[in-house]
Write a protein that binds this DNA or RNA. Structure first.
Lengths: 330, 330
DNA sequence: TTGTAAGCGTTATCAG
DNA sequence: CTGATAACGCTTACAA
C-alpha cells in the first residue's frame, strides 16, 4: 500500500518527478528515471488509479448497454468492444438492461455520476435517446433512424436480399417472424421484406407476420401460429434473428415438416450456432466484431475530443446460404 | 457540473451536512434534509462518484474474468453476477481473457491499482491462483480442487449420473468428448465417467476419449474422430459441454447417423439452446444464475469484511433427459 | 444536529 | 529537467 510519496522519498526526488516518470517518462532525465524505477520496484508500488481518475476527472471507463447479454450475437459485439477499449486504456462496465427502462436509466446514471465517460448502446432505441444530452452515447447496432454517432448495417437491404433469395427459389407465401413490432430493427427488416415483395409484384399479407421478441421461445411460438393454418400455409419463414429461426426450426420439426423440402427458414445475425442447426441456417452475417470495434472507436474518439467526421458507420453484411432454404414445394 | 459546495451554499448549510444528507439521511434533521434536497434538485446536482470512491479508497467495482463471453453458459452466469452486484451497489468490469494468461494478468492489475475491489473467476484455474494474495478472488464455476472461496456443482457426480443413464440404456461403448485434458472441469468429469464405468464392471478405454476445447468446432471434429472407426464404434457420446455436444450432433448428421436411434449424445450445462437442438439435448443443468449470484455474494461479503463461513458453496445440479439419448442399438 | 477542517493520492502549474 | 504546492470533490473525526 505504498504511495507516490514514499517512492519519491526512497528515490530521493519529488513526487512530481515520480508522477512524470510514470506518465511522461520522456520528460525526465534517464538517470532520474532509473532511480525512480528502482524505488518503484523496491516498494512494489502500484499507482492508485482511483486517485488518478479523480484528479483527471475521467473514469477511463465506458458502459455497454445490452438488452440481453446471453444472446450470442451481442456477446460477440461486446467482446470486440472490450478488446478495443482495453487497447486504448479503458475498462468496460457491463449494463445488462433486460430491456428494462429502469435499469437503463440506472446505467446512464453511471455516466452522470462520472463513473463512466460514455455509453455504447447495443439496442437501437431510436425513440428514447438519453435525456441528458451531455451523455456521450453511440449506437453499435443501429438502424435507419438511429441518431449518429452510430454503427450499423443496411438492415433494409439485408432483409430484401434474404427475401429475394426466397422468391428466387419460387416461394410465394413467405411468413415473417418479427421482433417486437415497435423495435426499430423489426421495422427496418419488415421494410426490406415489403420492398422485395413489391418488386416481385406480390401483395403484402399482414396475417403472415407473427410477432416475437427475438427469443428462442417466441420464435417457436410464432412459427407454430404461422404453420397452424390449413390452407395457404407459408412455404418459407423469414425470421428476424437466428434465435427465433432456431425456434422455428424446432417448431417445424415437431410439426413433422421437413426443412428445407417442405419449409424454408432463414435467420439473421449468423450467431456461432447458426452453422450447427439442422439443417444449417441460411442467414445474414452481421460483422459483429467490426461493429463492436467501430463503435468503441467512435465513442473513445469523442471522449478524447478527437471526434472524426465519420459519425455514421455503415458496414457491409454478408448473406450466407446454408441448408435451411430450398426450392418451394411443388 | 455543480459540486457539493454549491449545494451547501444554496441550501445554507455546510458541505458536511450535504454529504450526510446523501449518505446517512437519518442523521440529519428533516427540515434540513428538505432544504438540501431542494438545493440538489435546483442545481440538478449529481455526486461525483470518482471523488467518493477515491476518498473511501474503494472502487465499488468487481472484475469478472471469463474465458469466453460468447459462450452462452458463461453469459448467463455473468448476467446473474451483474444483477446481484448492482443490487449491492457495485458495478461489473468485464474481463474476457480469451484463455490468455497475459490478458488475465492485466485484469488482475485492475485490482492492484484499486480500480476494482475483487475478482470473480469463471474458469476454475486451480493451477494458477493470483500471485498476489492481497487480491480478493472467488471462483464461480469451480471444481474439486478449486481453492475456496468458490461456488461449484459436484462435477464428478454429475458426470457419473450422465454415464449411469447411458449405461442403464444398455450402452457399453461410451465415447467421451473432453475439454482440454488439463482443464480441471475435464478432469472432474472424466473422473465421474470412470467411476460409472468401474461401478458397472467395465474397463476404461483411453482411445474412446477425444480431446476438444469446449467449442462447437472442436466437438464436431472430436466426434468425427470417434465415429470414424469401423469396428467397436461408440454407441453413445458423453460430451463435456453443450457446445461440443451440438458439434457432435452435427457430426452425426453429416455421417448419416440417426440420434438417438443409432447414437446417443449428452451435453453438459443446459445452455438456452439445448432444448432446441435436434433432437433436444439430454444434459446436466448447472444452476448458472444461482452460481453467479452466490459467487457475487461471496465476493462482496469479503470485500465488505463480513465474510461468512460459507466459503465453499456446492449447488445442486439437475440431470435433464431429453431426446438425444435412447436405448443402445441392437 | 450541525459545522470546521484535515486529509485521500494524484496531476498540473509555475518557478527555479 | 526538477521541485514546491495548490487543487480535485468528497467523507469523517471532532468540536460546538
Amino acid at each position: 500500500m505504498s504511495n507516490i510519496r514514499e517512492v519519491a522519498r526512497l528515490a530521493g526526488v519529488s513526487v512530481a518527478t515520480v508522477s512524470r516518470a510514470l506518465s511522461h517518462p520522456e520528460k525526465v532525465a534517464p538517470a532520474t528515471l532509473e532511480k525512480v524505477q528502482a524505488a518503484i520496484a523496491e516498494l512494489d508500488y502500484r499507482p492508485n488509479m482511483l486517485a488518478r481518475n479523480f484528479r483527471q476527472a475521467r473514469a477511463f471507463a465506458i458502459v455497454v448497454l445490452v438488452p440481453d447479454l446471453s444472446n450470442s450475437f451481442f456477446a460477440t459485439v461486446i467482446r470486440a468492444i472490450e478488446d478495443r477499449a482495453q487497447q486504448r486504456g479503458y475498462v468496460v462496465l457491463l449494463g445488462d438492461t433486460r430491456d428494462s427502462r429502469v435499469r437503463e436509466r440506472s446505467c446512464l446514471r453511471l455516466v452522470e455520476t462520472r463513473l463512466a465517460d460514455g455509453v455504447i448502446q447495443l439496442s437501437p432505441h431510436a425513440t428514447a435517446h438519453p435525456d441528458r444530452d451531455e451523455i456521450l452515447c453511440v449506437y453499435a447496432c443501429g438502424c435507419e433512424n438511429t441518431p449518429a454517432p452510430s454503427v450499423r448495417i443496411d438492415n433494409v437491404r439485408a432483409a430484401r436480399t434474404v427475401v429475394e433469395h426466397l422468391l428466387a427459389l419460387g416461394h410465394r407465401r413467405i411468413g415473417v417472424i418479427s421482433g417486437l413490432r415497435d423495435n426499430p430493427h423489426s421495422r427496418d427488416r419488415l421494410k426490406g421484406y415489403k420492398q422485395a415483395l413489391r418488386a416481385a409484384g406480390l401483395a403484402f399479407e399482414p396475417s403472415w407476420v407473427a410477432e416475437g421478441d427475438f427469443t428462442l421461445a417466441s420464435g417457436l411460438e410464432a412459427a407454430r401460429r404461422l404453420l397452424a393454418r390449413r390452407e395457404a400455409r407459408p412455404t418459407a419463414l423469414f425470421c428476424m434473428n437466428d434465435e427465433m429461426a432456431i425456434g422455428a426450426l424446432r417448431a417445424a420439426k415437431t410439426l413433422g415438416l421437413e426443412v428445407p423440402k417442405q419449409l424454408s427458414v432463414t435467420g439473421f445475425d449468423d450467431i456461432r450456432y447458426a452453422p450447427y442447426t439442422d439443417p444449417p441456417l441460411t442467414t445474414v452475417a452481421q460483422p459483429a466484431e467490426a461493429m463492436g470495434r467501430a463503435a468503441a472507436d467512435l465513442l473513445l474518439d469523442r471522449i478524447e475530443q478527437r471526434a472524426g467526421d465519420n459519425e455514421l458507420v455503415v458496414l457491409p453484411f454478408e448473406f450466407i446460404v446454408r441448408g435451411s432454404t430450398g426450392p418451394a414445394p411443388g
